[in-house]
Design a protein around this nucleic acid. Structure first.
Lengths: 160, 160
DNA sequence: GTAGTGTCTATAGTAGCTATAGAGTCAAGC
DNA sequence: GCTTGACTCTATAGCTACTATAGACACTAC
């Protein structure tokens, strides 16, 4: 019993446009078509979409998912690279968490510079204007307090 | 001593194209021009760009920065909304951190399902295929283990 | 005059979708 | 047979915050 794209969307939790998009991006094979040119799917497509969604929810991008699907379809090499991929994702997530925690400290410091309800002289605006030595960055290199320190490298003869 | 766009870029730490982009987006005013149509800036533009960059580094989007700049240019209302804005950002960052920490737990569990170096039968692929009851989600609602449970709401008469 | 750099505008690309337009298809009800 | 409503089709544009490219013009040192 073949499925039309709307039924596949319902079963997989994806949207119709997303399914078409995945097809265009090569994550889903070109499906059969009815005489009216409607796409026809089956259970294996539901599972493939579940796989894709789980990968997306784990933060993988479409290129990575394409590789994983290719391995799944034709597992001809060692899967060691999949472990590397997941390891890199874990490291990346850790970096993001650290960066966000740092940002949070700054935002909280920023928040404390103003009690609100002024028309002029808002402490938050002042801090964004002139920067503030934030307690969390006294010793470490903090990109939130450095602006033009490192000018972009240029290779001119005249100004170099 | 007016600055050309390249000098402004160097002083502000922005790229030339980004400065033109900010102008197009209304974050920077239309600058004076030379007879050869070159943009001319001054110190106030350096400061404005520093302000913009600090906002960006604090995770604000261009629409928010536009509002902040408008307030800075013409502070006619109370700044209480700025505190709300920062509060919302803090809450948002906290949500992101929690979500990433959750994701990290899942990625680590995923990582442990395979020791690598197989050609077929990779545990990671299997887990992505079928999902896994992850220890971190036993009791709470976990979107990483739910896929098609909640079908998108539809308002048809025929299938509803 | 020429070489090397800088600047100009306009356009397209990035990721992963989402939204829209305009047309064709299908099934139920009259 | 006709209408209505839901569904499907393709193609295109939009989202964010830039980044990259092309082709033309400007400036300065030699």
């Amino acid at each position: 019993m073949p499925l039309k794209i709307g039924e596949l969307a319902r079963l997989s939790g994806c949207q119709v446009v997303t399914i078409r998009y995945y097809e265009k991006e090569g994550l889903l094979p070109q499906p059969e078509r009815t005489s009216a040119n409607y796409r026809l799917y089956d259970e294996s497509d539901v599972e493939r979409l579940h796989f894709i969604r789980r990968c997306r929810l784990h933060g993988m991008n479409l290129a990575e998912i394409r590789s994983l699907l290719a391995f799944k379809d034709h597992p001809t090499v060692s899967c060691a690279w999949i472990n590397d991929l997941v390891d890199r994702h874990i490291a990346d997530v850790e970096r993001q968490i650290a960066s966000l925690q740092h940002l949070k400290t700054h935002l909280e410091a920023l928040r404390h510079t103003c009690a609100g309800d002024h028309v002029q002289g808002c402490g938050i605006i002042d801090t964004l204007d002139h920067g503030s030595p934030c307690a969390c960055c006294h010793e470490e290199h903090c990109h939130l307090n450095e602006l033009s320190a490192e000018a972009p490298k240029r290779k001119t003869k005249r100004n170099g």
